[in-house]
Each structure stands twice: as C-alpha cells, then as structure tokens.
C-alpha cells in the first residue's frame, strides 16, 4: 500500500474542521440514508443534517465519508479532492489511508467528475468476494439538470428518469461494461449538495 503523501500533517491544525458533533447518532442517520439510497436507486435522499464540510467536499460527501470510511478502507481521492483541505480532514477524522492506486481502493472520492478515471480502472471485486469492489462517491452538480437517462432494476418500480449533470461523456457506456462484470463491479453513490443518490451495480441505465 503506497501512501499518497508520506509527510505527517503539521501539528498546527488551525484549518482543520471538526467532524460529526455526535459521532454515533450522526453516523447512524447518514448510514440509514445511504442504505435507503442504495435500496431505492435514482431517488434523491436528502440528509437531515448539514455541517461545515472541508473544501471541496459538499456536506453530503463529507458526511458519507465520515460514515463509511476508516483506517481499514484504503481510499483514492481525485486530484481536486486531494489538493483541498479535505485530504488532511479525511486522514484525521477517518484515519483514512490515501492511496494512488485506483485498482486496490475500497473507496474512491471524486469531486471533479469530468476528470474521473474510467470505471474499469477501479477494483471490480473478486468472484468469491464481489463485495470487495470499489465504492465510488461522486459529487455532481445536479440530479435534474443534466442529460436525461432511464434507470431500471431492483428498487425501481418500472423505470426512473434521472438527469445527472457533470459526468464525463463516456460514463454511461462504462456503466454498461461494469454491468457485464456482474456479480463483480463497482457501485456508485452520487452526492449533490446535501443529498445522496445510489447507483448499485444491478441497475441498467439507458443514456
């Protein structure tokens, strides 16, 4: 495991923002929201609490990271996320090991979705343990103002019309390839402002 930045955080953490005010109940509430988001793909699930997130994370992205990640989940951050105050914040509050290698990451956080690496570069899981794949947290501009897509699959009654803004042009064709790996494959949780939207690997999307 290679660490992205081996220098320790300076001890004058003047810029470091606090984490959850109530770690147990806040994390439980956000975890519940994440469960609902995964169970009902395509629904925007608002979080019932906001807090001051470190740049460039939105409130929802930051809350999700605090909830899901810890020192045992090596994570990859895109360049924009790694260069902001978010990197030190994640290392402090989650004890998060940051890695350069997308193919071994348990989590990946992208705040600059347009420059995301291709989905096949992330860990697809193993056939015995498909749950070990990378979960991508992708922060987007909007759930409603982008190109229209049609989602079908478990958790969606009939179909859902979703219009995520700010994804690279290749994203949905990559998503088709990801589906072919089933039961392996990555899962995605989109965040926007203070809301989550789940896109588990079981969902088919027509762009």
């Amino acid at each position: 495991m290679t660490l992205q930045s081996p220098t320790p955080m300076s001890s004058d953490g003047a810029a470091l923002k606090p984490g959850f005010a109530d770690p147990v109940f806040d994390a439980q509430a956000v975890f519940r929201a994440a469960l609902v988001a995964i169970a009902y793909p395509g629904r925007a699930i608002p979080l019932d609490r906001t807090f001051a997130a470190p740049r460039p994370l939105s409130s929802a992205t930051a809350a999700l990271c605090l909830t899901l990640m810890d020192f045992e989940t090596p994570a990859w951050l895109d360049r924009q996320t790694a260069s902001g105050e978010a990197s030190a914040w994640l290392r402090f509050h989650c004890g998060l090991p940051l890695i350069d290698d997308t193919s071994t990451a348990r989590f990946a956080v992208g705040t600059d979705a347009l420059n995301l690496p291709h989905l096949l570069e992330f860990h697809p899981g193993e056939i015995e343990y498909p749950d070990r794949s990378t979960t991508l947290v992708i922060q987007v501009k909007s759930f409603t103002d982008g190109p229209v897509t049609t989602w079908t699959g478990p958790g969606i009654k009939g179909s859902a019309t979703i219009a995520i803004d700010g994804l690279p042009f290749w994203f949905w064709s990559d998503w088709d390839l990801n589906s072919e790996l089933y039961p392996r494959g990555v899962d995605v949780i989109f965040t926007c402002g203070n809301a989550l939207m789940g896109l588990p690997r079981t969902i088919k999307v027509e762009a």
């Binding site: 953490g13 470091l16 606090p18 984490g19 005010a21 770690p23 402090f92 509050h93």
Partner: peptide, 8 residues
C-alpha cells in the same frame, strides 16, 4: 478549546 474529536 474546541473539540476536533470528542473523547470516545
């Protein structure tokens, strides 16, 4: 002081 991480 302010808490960066509450005692846990």
């Amino acid at each position: 002081f302010e808490w960066l991480r509450r005692p846990h």
